[in-house]
Every structure is written in structure tokens, then in C-alpha cells.
């Protein structure tokens, strides 16, 4: 038996919004620890991982691990039927269930909606992601700043270079119409309302596809802050963490490299 109830549908709606433009379908792996998925996009440029830990849920029961193959567009359609303040309960049989039940209940518990989502058999392979905490450079910024930087630059072109030196990050773009750049300095005071922090072991300069950096802005409502971790020649890791360590959405983006 798998049963998980979120107090408000907003949490899962936001998480799905952050991943559904990158992956069409994925296995939602349920375990005693929580709900998680990982999937690559078709061109194998971006890997998306998501975790909703058991403490994110008001009720969480997973007697034994199960994997629910879900079409992201379909689950999003069903969740559109939940108001943001409605609670969401997901129920599935852990013995080869062919559908999952979604129950939406309003705050006054006098309106209850039931939906069944057909599950799919998805043949996906799990990738082993190096737990590399030894990044050359880590920058944390308000997620609204992230949105502004990459929605602006990706309009100019798709080749975006991130260069991080001591206390400064430079984001630059080259496009057909011209180019542009933006420098962001570490904020001086720890009391600053919207701090930017930059930790550099070694300066790093890498280039990434702007289209993806812009798509990741869909995760901005999840989190007030975003962390970008860079190591020369390796995928960029971007993390949006849910409040109260309830979970996260992480993206790994392959760099553009010299031919």
C-alpha cells in the first residue's frame, strides 16, 4: 500500500511545473524515505532529478518500494483539477497497480474529488550521479535574480558563458544580433535581504545552452534561492530546494565544449 497526502496541492503543482517541459514521462520511485524521480531529456543534454521527502507529507505510508510510471502531461492535467489550497492524497496498490488514485479535498472538507491516473510501464535506466561536493565554484542567488539573468540573456542567444572569479560571477551571451554580459558581485553584508554568495576554490569559465538555463526558471516558484555548482569540464548542477528540507529539484546540464 502506498498512501501520501500533501496539505496543499501547491507543492506538487510547482514541482511538476519545474520538470514537465524537460521530460515527457518518468518513473516515480516511492520508498519509505519519500517520492523521487530522475530522467534525462531526449537529446541527453539535461538530467532532472526530484525528491519529495516523506516529511513533506502530512500522511506518508509506503509499505514496500514501488515505481509508478507516469506521463507528466497527464498528471499535470489531473492536478489542474485541484485548487491550490486543496489537499492532495495519492493512493496506489504496491502489487503491480495499473493506476494511481488522486483525491483532492478542499479546506472545509465538503468538496472531495477523485481521479484515477493510468500508470505506464517505463523502461528507464538509473544513472549514477557522482556525489561530488568538491565543486570548483558554487554561487547562490535569489531565484528571482536567476530568472532575470537567464530570461534576459537567452533572448540574445543560446551560447551562455558563466565565468566565476573571486567574489564575482560574469554571465555573458553571444547571439546573431550581438552579445551581452552581466556581472554579479557577492553581496557585502550578511544582513542583505537578497544575498548573493560566491565560493570559489578555483576560477571557472564554462559555456552552456541558454535554452535550458531559461527552462530551469520554471522551478523559481519552488524556492527563494538557487545554487549553481560548477567544475570545469563537468555538468553544471543547479538546485532549487523546497522549504523545510521537504525536497528539491536538481538539474544537471551538459556543457558546450570546444570542437
Amino acid at each position: 500500500m502506498f498512501e501520501a497526502k500533501l496539505t496543499e496541492s501547491t507543492t506538487i503543482k510547482r514541482v511538476l511545473d519545474a520538470i514537465k517541459d524537460l521530460i515527457q514521462q518518468a518513473n516515480f520511485d516511492c520508498s519509505a524515505d519519500g517520492l523521487s524521480l530522475q530522467a534525462m531529456d531526449t537529446p541527453h543534454v539535461c538530467l532532472t532529478t526530484m525528491t519529495l521527502r516523506s516529511q513533506a507529507f502530512e500522511v506518508y505510508r509506503c509499505d514496500r518500494p514501488l515505481s509508478m510510471g507516469i506521463n507528466l502531461s497527464s498528471i499535470s492535467k489531473i492536478l489542474k483539477c485541484a485548487a491550490s489550497k486543496d489537499s492532495v492524497k495519492i493512493v496506489a496498490d504496491d502489487e503491480g497497480a495499473d493506476c494511481a488514485e488522486f483525491i483532492f479535498e478542499n479546506e472545509s472538507a465538503d468538496r472531495i474529488a477523485h481521479f484515477e491516473l493510468k500508470l505506464m510501464d517505463i523502461d528507464s535506466e538509473h544513472l549514477s550521479i557522482p556525489e561530488d561536493s568538491d565543486y570548483q565554484a558554487i554561487i547562490s542567488m535569489p531565484s528571482a535574480e536567476y530568472r532575470r539573468i537567464f530570461s534576459d540573456l537567452s533572448i540574445i542567444g543560446d551560447t551562455i558563458t558563466i565565468e566565476i572569479n573571486k567574489n564575482t560571477a560574469c554571465f555573458s551571451v553571444e547571439g546573431d544580433i550581438g552579445n551581452g554580459s552581466l556581472n554579479l558581485a557577492q553581496t557585502d553584508s550578511a544582513d542583505e535581504k537578497n544575498p548573493v554568495t560566491i565560493n570559489v576554490k578555483e576560477p571557472v569559465k564554462m559555456t552552456f545552452p541558454g535554452k535550458y538555463l531559461n527552462t530551469f526558471t520554471k522551478a523559481v516558484p519552488i524556492s527563494e534561492f538557487v545554487t549553481l555548482c560548477l567544475t570545469d569540464g563537468n555538468p553544471l548542477a543547479i538546485e532549487f530546494s523546497l522549504p523545510d528540507e521537504a525536497g528539491f529539484v536538481r538539474y544537471f546540464l551538459a556543457p558546450k565544449i570546444d570542437q
Partner: peptide, 14 residues
């Protein structure tokens, strides 16, 4: 010019 790499060279299947 730079070329887009893929993740297949970085992450191995479990």
C-alpha cells in the same frame, strides 16, 4: 565554435 556535449559521457548507468 563550441559543440553541445551530452551527459552520457559523465553519468554511467547504475
Amino acid at each position: 565554435p563550441k559543440q553541445q556535449s551530452t551527459l552520457l559521457s559523465f553519468f554511467s548507468p547504475k
